[in-house]
Design a protein around this nucleic acid. Structure first.
Length: 275
DNA sequence: ATGGTCGATTATCGA
């Protein structure tokens, strides 16, 4: 599968990261600095907030990464950057529900094989609020992802698949800073948690939590209300791994440092080291 | 003070 005979990553393992960058163009300097320091081999990005023709490919290329992107205007947009190859790029997964006018509708999922691992960069619909039709779309979207994920493993139980990104679900009470605050909002409802659990039940394990246990461990902090310095966040960014991939995990970290200072994204990168 | 901040695109909307 690998095109390079002895890539550096095969000697010291593959470092896989996911990061909701909240605009790849507004964040470009910080993303580039993070790539230089972070040594990631594969980086999934979400909320790139640009069209394909606006994606700053050259900056990534200069840093040694190939890129694939799907996006539309300011909405959503997901990307993969890889220095261990990008093959078989797919925009959207089979059965993925649509919302709004294409191509915005397809800007939530990008799959590619990177260094032998099938990586999906995912931006799960937000839901907006419990009564909004967008919530139904969110739950349907996760149900279709569950079905697709189950089929991929049925076709090849040994497949090394990573489902990574911003899931817009906090699966446990400990994953939000205050359950009362979120009681009537999105991300914590039983329906949303069941939808997330459906993907886990299809065979994909959260491989980060064992290395970054809660409570009080988050991946997102609202820009407003000084949520970050007050340590009031949510854990909503996850790396889920298939049964063949999960045992390759050696460590995982949430890079809180990247949320600090000016011009930070409201999400921190999540990093997983594979053997 | 029932908001407070961002980003993309153009006075809103989404997160």
């Amino acid at each position: 599968m690998r095109e390079v005979s002895v890539p550096r990553s095969s000697v010291r393992g593959v470092r896989l990261a996911t990061w909701n960058v909240n605009s790849v163009r507004a964040r470009l300097e910080r993303v580039a600095d993070w790539l230089k320091a972070g040594d990631a081999d594969v980086v999934a990005m979400q909320e790139t907030k640009c069209r394909d023709d606006q994606f700053p490919e050259d900056t990534f290329r200069e840093l040694g990464y190939e890129v694939a992107h799907v996006g539309h205007s300011q909405w959503n947009g997901v990307a993969l950057a890889s220095r261990v190859g990008i093959e078989d790029v797919e925009r959207g997964f089979p059965g993925m529900p649509q919302w709004g006018d294409p191509p915005a509708a397809e800007a939530r999922a990008l799959g590619a094989t990177c260094g032998g691992i099938r990586v999906w960069s995912l931006y799960v619909p937000h839901g907006r609020d419990q009564q909004n039709p967008h919530m139904r779309y969110k739950l349907d979207w996760l149900a279709r992802l569950r079905d697709a994920g189950r089929e991929w493993l049925a076709a090849d139980p040994q497949a090394e698949i990573a489902l990574v990104g911003d899931w817009n679900v906090a699966p446990r009470d400990e994953d939000v800073w205050d359950m009362d605050f979120y009681a009537d909002k999105t991300h914590v409802s039983p329906a949303e948690r069941e939808a997330f659990a459906g993907v886990v039940g299809a065979g994909y394990a959260d491989v980060v939590r064992p290395y970054a246990p809660g409570p009080g461990v988050y991946t997102y902090w609202d820009y407003k209300q000084l949520r970050f310095p007050k340590r009031q966040g949510m854990r909503i960014d996850f790396v889920l791994a298939s049964p063949a991939l999960a045992p390759r995990v050696r460590s995982a970290t949430i890079d809180r440092e990247a949320r600090k200072g000016k011009n930070a994204s409201d999400h921190a990168p999540v990093v997983v080291d594979l053997r």
